[in-house]
Design a protein around this nucleic acid. Structure first.
Length: 189
DNA sequence: CCCTGATTCGC
DNA sequence: GCGAATCAGG
C-alpha cells in the first residue's frame, strides 16, 4: 500500500480528530501504526496543533548527529522550552457520562467486601448495563472476568469489558474488587 | 501486559 | 519517502 492522496487525507483527518495512530492504521488498512506515525512525522504534523496558526518552527532538540550505532546512545538533552499546549482540541473519546442510575435491584452476592463505596457500586451497576455479557468460554486474557448474576440461573454472565492493565477486571470492577483498605475505621497495628 | 507517540536508520 | 525496530512513557 502506498500513501495515495486520499489515504493521506484520511490520515490527516483522523489524526486531526485525535484518533490514535493504531486506529488510523486499522482504518486505512495495509499499514501499521508505525507507518502512520512515520508518515505523520514526515508530513510535519506530529504535534496535533496543526489547526490553529501556530507556532512555527520549533527548535528540535537534535543536538548531535550521531553516526555511530552505539548500544545505548539515547542521550537526552533537556529541552529548554516546552511547547505550550494550546489544547483546545475536542476529545471525542470522552465517555458521555450521564446520570448514574442508582441501584434499584438487589445486588448479586459480591465477592468479599461488603463495605464498598457507593460510588464504586453505582459505577459497577452502570457498567453492567453495557457489559459484553460473555460466557465462560468467551473470556480471554483481557476481558473482565467479573461474574454477574447467579451462576445457578440463566441470568449469568461475565462482564467482558476490556480489563485494566494487568488486573483481571475492568476498571469499574477493579474498583470494587480491590478495596483500598481504608474505610477501616479501626486501624490497629 | 496493554497501549500511546517519537525516533532512528537501513532500505 | 518508507516503516520496522526501538525507545520512552502511561
Amino acid at each position: 500500500m502506498s500513501w495515495t492522496d486520499d489515504r493521506v487525507e484520511l490520515l490527516k483527518k483522523m489524526w486531526g480528530e485525535g484518533q490514535s495512530a493504531s486506529q488510523i492504521a486499522k482504518e486505512l488498512g495495509g499499514v501499521t501504526r508505525n507507518a502512520v506515525i512515520g508518515k505523520v512525522h514526515r508530513l510535519g504534523l506530529s504535534n496535533r496543533a496543526g489547526s490553529a496558526g501556530a507556532a512555527k518552527a520549533e527548535a528540535k532538540p537534535k543536538p548531535a548527529p550521531k553516526a555511530k550505532p552505539d548500544p545505548k546512545p539515547q542521550l537526552k538533552t533537556e529541552p529548554a522550552i516546552k511547547p505550550v499546549p494550546v489544547d483546545a482540541s475536542p476529545k471525542p473519546n470522552l465517555p458521555a457520562r450521564k446520570q448514574i442510575i442508582p441501584a434499584g435491584q438487589p445486588l448479586p452476592p459480591q465477592p468479599s467486601a461488603n463495605e464498598i463505596s457507593p460510588e464504586a457500586l453505582a459505577k459497577v451497576n452502570a457498567v453492567e448495563k453495557k457489559a459484553k455479557k460473555l460466557t465462560l468460554m468467551e473470556l480471554t486474557e483481557r476481558t473482565c472476568k467479573w461474574p454477574v448474576g447467579d451462576p445457578a440461573t440463566e441470568d449469568f454472565w461475565f462482564c467482558g469489558l476490556p480489563v485494566q492493565q494487568g488486573k483481571p477486571y475492568c476498571e469499574a470492577h477493579v474498583g470494587v474488587a480491590f478495596q483500598p483498605m481504608s474505610a477501616r475505621r479501626d486501624r490497629r497495628r
